[in-house]
């Protein structure tokens, strides 16, 4: 075994606890909510990472988590958060993918779905199968009575005055959220 192989082996050996610890920093438990690792978010996370990015992504993940000190043994809670923040700042694309994948895996857990539903927000793991109960539209009470709105019939479409628009000469540089 080469030194490189030995190093890879060591990283992979601690990958399972490292991913679990990372997931628990993203999705800590508390106030009745299970932590991410408690319900196994790390398993679909790793599977999907490989599905989307190939097997080499596993080693890259191990190296990334190693750089931030995962599985965070001996680190106090604030230091763990700071470690994850450093990954967020230094590897935003990778971090963003892992965060989103972890969130998705967490909320497709039947355990979490059941907890959301039990807390008062109707929610189902397979809503398409059983649906949600909603009352039928009530024409007597839910038909709009505002009488607002108009349309121009075909034979009444007439030229509008566009002379003041100056679309060819006045340009809008700041548009969208920059407006």
């Amino acid at each position: 075994m080469t030194l490189q192989d030995a190093k890879k082996g060591a990283l992979l050996a601690k990958l399972a606890p490292s991913v679990a610890a990372f997931v628990d920093e993203l999705l800590p438990g508390g106030d009745g909510w299970p932590s991410g690792a408690t319900i196994g978010v790390q398993f679909p996370l790793v599977e999907r990472l490989i599905e989307q990015n190939g097997e080499q992504a596993l080693m890259a993940l191990a190296e990334t988590l190693d750089r931030i000190g995962a599985p965070f043994d001996g680190m106090d809670p604030d230091a763990r958060v700071e470690a994850v923040k450093s990954m967020e700042a230094n590897e935003p694309a990778r971090f963003g993918w892992l965060r989103d994948a972890a969130f998705q895996a967490y909320y497709e857990s039947p355990i979490v779905v059941t907890l959301i539903d039990a807390a008062g927000t109707p929610y189902k793991i397979l809503p398409h199968v059983s649906g949600y109960d909603l009352p039928r539209f009530d024409r007597a009470t839910q038909t709009p009575r505002h009488n607002r709105g108009r349309y121009i019939p075909t034979d009444q479409v007439a030229p509008v005055d566009t002379s003041g628009l100056n679309l060819d000469t006045v340009k809008t540089d700041k548009w969208g959220l920059q407006r």
Binding site: Y151, I152, T154, V157, A158, P159, V160, T162, L167
Partner: peptide, 13 residues
């Protein structure tokens, strides 16, 4: 809407 078919008449753009 009816006017959607008549934009040439409405403003020509």
């Amino acid at each position: 809407r009816p006017s959607d078919f008549r934009k040439g008449d409405e403003h020509g753009m």
